[in-house]
Simulated scan of single mutants.
Amino acid sequence: MHHVGVDWGHARMQVYDYFDKYTFLCEMYDVDADEILELVLNYFPFDNSVQVLHPRRGKILLKRVQLPTLKIEMLQVGNVVNIFSKLLQITDCTPATNKILFNNVQSTFALIKPIPPGMHGKIITFIMNKGFRIVRMKNGKISKDFAMALYSSIAGNNMMPIIIDYVTSGEVIGLELVAPNAVEKWRDCLGATDPKLAAPGTLRALYGNNTLKNIAHGCKSEAEAKQTLDAFFGYEKGLPKIPFRATYKNCTCCVIKPHALIDGNVGAILEQISTSDKFYISAMAMFTIRVCDAEEFYEIYKDVLPEYESMCIHLAEGKCIALEVKCNDPTLNVVCEFRKLCGPRDPDLGRQLYPNCIRALYGKDIIHNAVHCTDLPEDGELEVEYFFKLLANE
Rank of each mutant, 00 (worst) to 15 (best):
I127E: 04
G208N: 06
V135H: 03
F146P: 05
A205D: 12
A182K: 01
F146K: 00
A149V: 11
G174P: 06
W186T: 02
N139V: 01
L175H: 05
V183H: 02
V135M: 00
C189W: 04
A155R: 14
C189Q: 11
R133A: 08
V135Q: 04
L150R: 01
L190H: 00
L150N: 11
V167A: 03
T125D: 15
E171S: 15
R204M: 03
R204V: 02
P161F: 05
S143N: 06
A182N: 01
G208A: 03
K144I: 11
E184M: 10
T125K: 15
A149G: 09
N139Q: 07
P195S: 05
I162T: 14
E176Y: 02
S153M: 08
A198V: 06
T125I: 10
A182G: 00
A198E: 10
N181K: 03
R133T: 12
L190V: 04
N157K: 11
N158C: 09
I173D: 04
D165Q: 08
P180W: 06
G140R: 08
D194K: 08
G156T: 11
E171N: 15
V172A: 04
F126H: 06
N129T: 10
D165R: 10
I127R: 02
M128F: 01
T193C: 06
K130R: 14
S153I: 11
L206M: 15
K185Y: 10
D188N: 15
G208T: 00
G131S: 08
D188I: 07
L206Q: 13
A198G: 07
A192M: 06
S152Y: 09
I162E: 12
F126S: 02
S152M: 01
L177E: 05
F126W: 05
P195W: 02
